[in-house]
Simulated assay, not measured.
Amino acid sequence: MFAEERQALIVDLVASSNRVTVSDLATRFDITPETVRRDLDTLESSRQLRRVHGGAVSFDRQSMAELSLEERQTQHSDEKQRIAAAALALIPASQTGSILLDAGTSTELLADLLVDWAPAAPADELLVITNAVPIATKLAANPAIQIYILGGRVRGLTRAVVGPSTIAQLDALRPDIAFVGANGVHAEFGFSTPDAIESAVKTAIVRSARRVVALADSSKLDKETLIRFAALGDIDVLITDALPSNELAAALAAADVEVVIA
């Protein structure tokens, strides 16, 4: 097999599985690891994949890649709707309670469902704390819900309120449940996001709540982005739309994370 043919097959493998390893490629093509590394170097130089430790990944898995809120709202919308509905089922209507909604598309869909929330009895109340400007705006339309929006700097790309003052406010709060989004959920790396400032806020959200529920559609599973904001064991429940891979499922079970498939 010519090198060009082999490299074309490697590109196809990366496209289908998102990641390849040097050892697997060496076995598949019956070549030395050194030859595989030369192939990967050639393909990276032509921007057909990206080298990582032990192998390569597709370019769409760059650790700092981040879409805008508007772009993310058009992706996996059906799956996110199901995830939001499953998250809504965790919010009580029959007692006074507080929840915290992180900025993100899945949490914003949860907020859409909460616009119609009503208490089971007149004395029951729900306080929603959020660092998301769109979520606070939507929920302000429901007089049955008290809204507390965290202060700080608004990050234009995601409409999230971030910064040291946001973290300081979170450190003084203890909500019953926090719903947090993630860009990546990985067996070894945990829950991650591309931006350092938002990661710090997410870490504070996870630290603040009595119970933490992560909302992540299946496109985020087995993915790593730049910055870890929580280990698997820091999360109580993961709501997603498909069964995790065997490796991730085992890691979640070992960390005592309940997995809800929406």
Rank of each mutant, 00 (worst) to 15 (best):
T105K: 03
E258F: 13
V22M: 07
R207N: 14
A103L: 10
K80M: 00
D236S: 07
A89G: 13
D171P: 02
Q62H: 10
D78N: 05
G190N: 02
N142C: 04
D256V: 09
Q73I: 09
R28T: 11
T193H: 12
A141N: 10
T107Y: 06
V257R: 01
A86L: 09
T32E: 09
A230L: 05
Q75W: 11
Q169L: 11
T203R: 15
P143S: 05
V20D: 07
A172V: 01
T27N: 13
P143D: 10
A262V: 06
P143Q: 02
A253E: 12
A86P: 05
I227V: 08
I235N: 06
A249F: 07
A65K: 11
L127I: 00
G233K: 09
V201E: 01
Q169R: 03
L139R: 00
A3G: 07
A144S: 14
I91Q: 07
I177W: 01
P92A: 10
I83Q: 01
A253G: 07
A84L: 00
L43N: 03
P122S: 08
P134D: 04
A123C: 15
S192K: 03
T35R: 09
Q73K: 14
S245C: 04
Q7L: 08
A209P: 04
A182V: 05
D39C: 00
D39Y: 00
V22F: 10
R82Q: 04
Q75K: 08
T27F: 13
V22S: 01
A123R: 12
Q7W: 07
R207M: 13
Q95W: 03
A56R: 06
Q73Y: 14
E34D: 11
S106R: 13
V185S: 02
V259A: 06
Q95S: 15
Q7R: 05
A214P: 05
L221M: 11
V52H: 09
D60L: 07
T203C: 06
R211H: 07
E108Q: 11
Q169P: 00
L170R: 10
E66P: 03
A103N: 10
R38T: 05
P143C: 05
G97H: 13
T32H: 09
T27E: 12
G184Q: 10
R51Y: 10
A172Q: 08
A168C: 03
L248I: 01
F229G: 03
N142Y: 06
I227K: 02
Q169E: 06
L170I: 13
A216T: 05
D124Q: 09
A132T: 02
N183T: 10
T225P: 03
A230R: 02
V22P: 00
L69M: 06
R72K: 00
V20F: 06
E188F: 14
A255I: 05
P122R: 06
S17Y: 12
G97C: 14
Q95G: 11
L173P: 11
A187S: 15
Q146M: 14
S98T: 08
F189K: 10
R6G: 14
L150S: 01
L69T: 08
S58A: 13
L90G: 10
D236G: 04
G97R: 08
A86F: 05
D236Q: 06
V11H: 02
